[in-house]
Design a protein around this nucleic acid. Sequence first.
RNA 1: GCAGCCGUAGCUCAGCUGGAUAGAGCGUUGGCCUCCGAAGCCAAAGGUCGCUGGUUCGAUUCCAGUCGGCUGCACCA
Length: 598
Amino acid sequence: MEQVKASFRASLESALPGVEILIERPKSAEMGDFAFPCFRAAKALGRNPTQIAQELAASLTIQGAELKATGPYLNVQLRPEVRARLLLEALLGPTPYGSAPAHSETVLVEYSSPNIAKLFTIGHLRSTMIGHTLAQVNRYLGCQVQRLNHLGDWGTQFGTLLAAYTRWAAETNPKLDRDFDWAEESSARRHTPLFRLFQLYVRFHQEEAVHPEMRDEARTWFKRLEEGDSEARRLWTWFRQVSLAEFQRIYDRLGVGFDAMDGEAFYEDKMPAAVQRLRDSGLLEEGEGGAFIVRLEDVGIQTPSLMVKADGTTIYATRDLAAAIFRRETYDFDRCIYVVGSDQVLHFQQLFAVLGKLDPWFQGRLLHTPFGMIQLPEGKMSTRKGNVVFLEDVLDEAVTRVMAIIGEKNPDLPDKGAVAEMLGMGAVVFFDALNDRVKPITFTWDRVIALDGDTGPYVQYAHARILSVLRKAGGTWVQKARPTEALSPAIAAVPYRPEALPEDLSGLEDPAAQSLLFELAGLPEAIRTVQRENMATALARQLLSIARAFSAFYTNCPILWAENGPEVREARLTLCVATARALRQGLFLMGIQAPEEM
RNA sequence: GCAGCCGUAGCUCAGCUGGAUAGAGCGUUGGCCUCCGAAGCCAAAGGUCGCUGGUUCGAUUCCAGUCGGCUGCACCA
């Protein structure tokens, strides 16, 4: 495939010296495999693009392909059997399709980053899954990736929690004691210590609205924590432990993992040095009320970055500063991607500006990939106010709905629970990836857990149907579509195993088969788009196109019919194997599993 | 007030660094299971791409302005 493109390019370069050659991918298989728009050439030569296309079509030749001038476009259309041969060779041949050689670029992805002592809401899904996909795709494309979970385990919010706990823990619920065995009741989420802590947190904010003086109480507690007060530290450690146990269960369900879980507290002892560096470089100035700030007007940011509060304590900007400096020393990274909501764009602009002033090394290496918030139909979600949708409720509801459908359509399915879990996660996670990450999402159950149409289960269904055909085909067909080892979140790619191709591929001349091949050809580019744009949309959409093309192929081209002859059967089964692998690989990069039956 | 993001079919959204008839899903209407899984397939209807200018051979895409919506604007994260 790539050789054909290269030879097309070479022919064009010799025919049109001095003209920049940009080869595009046509919109559909009927137009061809490669397209050369002649507009630039026309401008450079001062001639009519349609005429140029016609002349080129007449004068050039490409082995195994037809050159067609369609208006101002010069299209290369491979002969069906050549196209099938080249693409299957690329998909199943000795070299994994679309992979890139490993290179030394080190990419850090900071994502998920939940706050300790709060429950995962549907809002946390976005950072977690976008980050996971970016980590997977960058690793797949050969980068050295470090997955960082910047836990929100420090800050004034802990003052709030400590104040709330010491005020009301005993009266609210005697069982919410520091010695409470959280494992005892962990099955009932609404009764876990984490949920009770969450309730205390909400209550404090409610009462604080009436009694503003309580705010000082929280601030004092945080100061005690920051100064190393033993009681504050002891409670903090317990809060953290309880929270992490809860978080881990959700990460396990989503198949998400991390290489480092250093939270904000980890950087606590690294902040003084960071602040001192700012001071030494003359960037730190005293602002209103005795706080210390870095002015950024000269780089177009009117709001200064506050680094030390008037009471001498730190702020999240200080911790992000220390974290970036630490990460430079630890990883010597080429890129650091912060997957954080779009409500924090200003914060990251400030942070990057401060770091850039402090050390030009940081310039161009830091990237904030913002994403839109999830809102409820009635407005913004607020943990403090308590009107939130918990992520685990959404995951559970998705699984429940899938179970109901399985009970109706495939009641004899073995291992229903595991399959329902894969499909439920698939629905929720795929939905998150489907659209541009910067756009806000209004949460409704039916949207987020849709199971028909452009959804994860649609792609999973196509995969399951392929496996069903391969099972019926017998022999080793199923093995060919299976990975060689169990998949885990720690690896970025489904293990690759080359396959020999049949001699005769005439069974793939049908337009539906050709169309499927065309969509499969688009997968590597979609994966590179994910890396370039730092969002999974292109990959999710390409998988849908492949699944759709497969469904059409499946209904139009009988695979197992004996009257077709063994050559046709083998060619179509081989295409099935290639499709199953592509779907499984693509879903896996997104953190979605593909069951063989559903 | 200043800054950023977003306005594409009834609804939810794609549209790849400007380019071939603007594409999907949901919903609506009508077809398709005595042959591989109907969680599916096929077809129809539905759009002056918010508005006005500008750049260009060519703008949904780039620029300016304008209207509408969302977000942020120092001691929360």
